[in-house]
Amino acid sequence: MIRLKNLTKIFNKGSVNENLAVNRVSIDVKRGDFITVIGSNGAGKSTLLNLIAGVYPPEIGKVIIDGRNVTSLKEHQRAKFIGRVFQDPMMGTSGSMTIEENFSIALARGRRRTLAFGVNQKSREIFRGRLSLLGLGLEDRLSDKVGLLSGGQRQSLTLLMATLNSPKVLLLDEHTAALDPKTAKLVMDITRRIIETYNLTTVMITHNMQQALANGNRLIMMHQGRVIFDVKGPERDRMTVEDLLDHFGKLRGSLADKTLLSIKTEAP
């Protein structure tokens, strides 16, 4: 479903601040895969996700989604088949607009926006149906401003908006990291349910090893712009956080302790 070929991203190329953020990464993601990506700060996880989403073009390499080379497509052009949820709950929704207006913007994703009313009786029914899946009572608050909602509610809303038009790919960039533990669990439960219901191909970045092991069917570890560990199937299912830490140490024997310490090991 997603094929990354030799993907490379260099920031501030040619200056003293030159930073090789993603270094010749090639990954093949199968349809229906749920991949979790872990790694320390600056490992290139978010850059990788942004390259898939088209936030910026790669220096070298290709992004192929569902057989189509999308490398030259801009972010808004790729949005047709990509759903995204960001770390910051404020980022995925417009706070000054109502729930139904936000939904309406997501509903028109991938097609030309017209001069028809954004919200009508028919679309309201769709929104209500989707919102009732959350069990947060938001279906009765369609005309409330999103700015009035809590971080967890906003993040759940973003999730629904990202998956409203059944995208080919769902990208989650540490989308529970800014939430309190209880809300993080709730949002993660909702995420799992949505992914299962629509059988979405998903790439999820997380800082949390426990979360990375508890979700998905394949795990990728990144370090300094490269994929250093890639595991799936029964081997992955058997792994514990300690195994992961072991692996991390083995693969990067020279690794400084502080890099290891920056990875959270506790459960959410």
Partner: peptide, 11 residues
């Protein structure tokens, strides 16, 4: 209000 969100929604 939120250019990042609106781009992610294909605008």
């Amino acid at each position: 209000d939120n250019p990042q969100m609106v781009q992610a929604q294909g605008v």
